[in-house]
Design a protein around this nucleic acid. Structure first.
Lengths: 342, 342
DNA sequence: GGCCGTACCGAAAAGGTTTTCGGATGCTTT
DNA sequence: AAAGCATCCGAAAACCTTTTCGGTACGGCC
């Protein structure tokens, strides 16, 4: 029944315990452990030994209480199940990472009440800052409570232009997708988008149009709006082939839509990429690598976005708080669905 | 340039501020706000007004320092990108939920060094407990450090039987999958599994065998081990149809494998579910709902698992710590790929 | 021998909250 | 009028660490 070496019930060692064991005062022990000078090398040694022996771990609460900083940040997300907040979270954790910062994770699940509740709790825990991750790229209302720590909005910008927001560059994403297709020699390009309600979809269309205009190439057919799902891709591809049989590239609103489009193309006997090139958005690995051929996609660099948010928060903590909307570049990840060999 | 109502630089209000404004002592203010008795109703009223006016929020650090409990738990995961830790995390957050507990999230990324680092940090922050989420259902080594707070292992059990672990019932999952197929009238059942390295795959096979034995039905062909991916499903299905053309049900190791199997079946002209029923594991919504027909799958109830882990941790915090491995039941989610209409 | 500088160490305060216990007030009872 | 009692409030300790500042010891110098 042996528990871990430090059985529960044994009060965890404090600095005074260490000091007593080392035969010095707490002040000296503190200085020794924190590398302050004015402490004899030999004394320091004794303190370190005592600390190791008691497996001393300084109480961050006491330290934070004194310093006024806790080395914690709150990460408030709205959809943890979604695959967008996760990479952002990873990136943020990464940037804080090896440092001394720990992350409080809270999921409000799209509920304003719950969100307030969480913000209160985080504030009461004296977090040094807050990252708010939206559930779509559509602007979201700013935090309801008055918050006296820096806040950075990620993925979804705040509706308040005084706030600092970091979002993916969807216009640029649409643009670079088209540029990639053109670079692959395609000239009859159609666009099967996602849900029109989402600004992400509309922004990408803007980028698509701009890139086509610059190249002097018309869009084949209309932009088709629907959902973000496979079923929509299958249906839309059917209609597209009926009306525009000579299409040679389809840009899809999401990787899922692209999967549906690939299915329909195969059933109609069109070869990919030989006859028709196909491209998706999001670069969701499980979608792109399971596809036949593997799917070229635009990666939104969400992890980089998370890192950027964390860095911005860091800056805001000790410097003045920035504001406005900053974008993070996307990137094309070419695979077999647009290149003959890959 | 108006910032939030409580501009930075304005030291946040403390209890003494509230007390001063209300014209009472800090002790009385504390008692009033915390609903202790022995304080006049009118006085309490004044204190509450003062607190509201200063938008007072009690400093959890000071409270935790005094109480020896912080109302925080650490959640240590190994693969945040994976889709398994997320629902668990959600469930845990849910169970702690509206209560007073906040969650520190740490991702060790499979790195033992990083894990120790995070454990140290969490201990230093005086978390009341720890949930360790593994990256696969394979047993994992226990925490390296000696930890004096309760620990619950979720998804992957600890190798140390003295620890408390909560894992999905994979054997039961295999069993109930076969029972579902039999209930659908299938008798020529084949099993295309996943990666043999994973105990999850082997455990499910055990369940499959047990259920078939009980029903007196032989397994069609050998259990086919491969990977968890679509490509494996496509390839394995091809081989299966060549060798066992009269198969009428295929149980797949994952939803992705099932997607691949569905593809091959369609290309070979087999109708699903009329000719062949298909079933997956994980109930990954994006995979099941995009499939044609929609995919029947076994849900591992990961959110429930997370909740169970959180509850177990709660119990361990004030009562004695349990030990051993507890399982959480899975459930079959029937859809069109096994039922003619759905 | 007295003085100064250096090197090291320790006492104490600060940070914000909760809890305990003693004190004060006003009211009732004899 | 004195004693007793219920009710409410406040002073102070406790939690643990860091930092400041004053103190001690000692070697070197005039």
């Amino acid at each position: 029944m042996a528990r871990s070496p430090a059985p529960r019930g044994t009060r965890t060692a404090t600095l005074s315990d260490v000091a007593r064991l080392a035969g010095v005062s707490v002040a000296t022990a503190s200085k020794a452990l924190n590398g302050r000078n004015h402490v004899h090398a030999q004394t320091r040694e004794r303190v370190f030994e005592a600390a190791a022996q008691l497996s001393f771990s300084p109480n961050s609460l006491a330290r934070g209480l004194l310093a006024g900083k806790t080395g914690t940040v709150g990460l408030l997300t709205s959809d943890l199940v979604g695959r967008f907040s996760l990479p952002i979270l990873m990136g943020a954790e990464d940037a804080f990472g090896a440092g001394q910062v720990s992350v409080f994770l809270c999921d409000a699940r799209g509920d304003a009440i719950r969100e307030r509740h969480h913000v209160r709790a985080l504030l009461s825990r004296r977090v040094d800052g807050l990252i708010v991750v939206g559930s779509s790229t559509d602007p979201r209302p700013p935090l309801a409570d008055s918050v006296d720590v820096p806040v950075v909005y990620a993925y979804a910008p705040s509706e308040n232009p005084e706030d600092l927001s970091i979002v993916p560059d969807n216009v640029g994403a649409g643009r670079m997708a088209v540029e990639h297709l053109i670079a692959c020699g395609r000239t009859r390009i159609a666009h099967i988008s996602g849900d029109r309600q989402y600004s992400a979809a509309r922004d990408r269309v803007d980028g698509v149009r701009a890139a086509l205009d610059e190249a002097g190439i018309p869009l084949v057919g209309q932009v088709a709006y629907g959902t973000w799902e496979e079923g929509w891709g299958r249906a839309a591809a059917g209609m597209l082939l009926d009306r525009e049989p000579d299409v040679d590239a389809v840009l899809c609103g999401s990787d899922q839509v692209a999967r549906g489009v690939l299915d329909t193309l195969r059933e109609r006997g069109r070869r990919v990429p030989d006859d028709v090139a196909v491209m998706g958005f999001d670069n969701w690995q499980v979608m792109t690598s399971g596809a036949r051929p593997q799917l070229t996609s635009v990666d939104m660099n969400l992890e980089e976005l998370g890192r950027a948010a964390a860095r911005a928060l860091f800056e805001s903590i000790d410097a003045e708080h920035g504001k406005g909307i900053r974008t993070v570049q996307c990137r094309v990840v070419p695979r077999g669905s647009t290149a003959p060999d890959a």
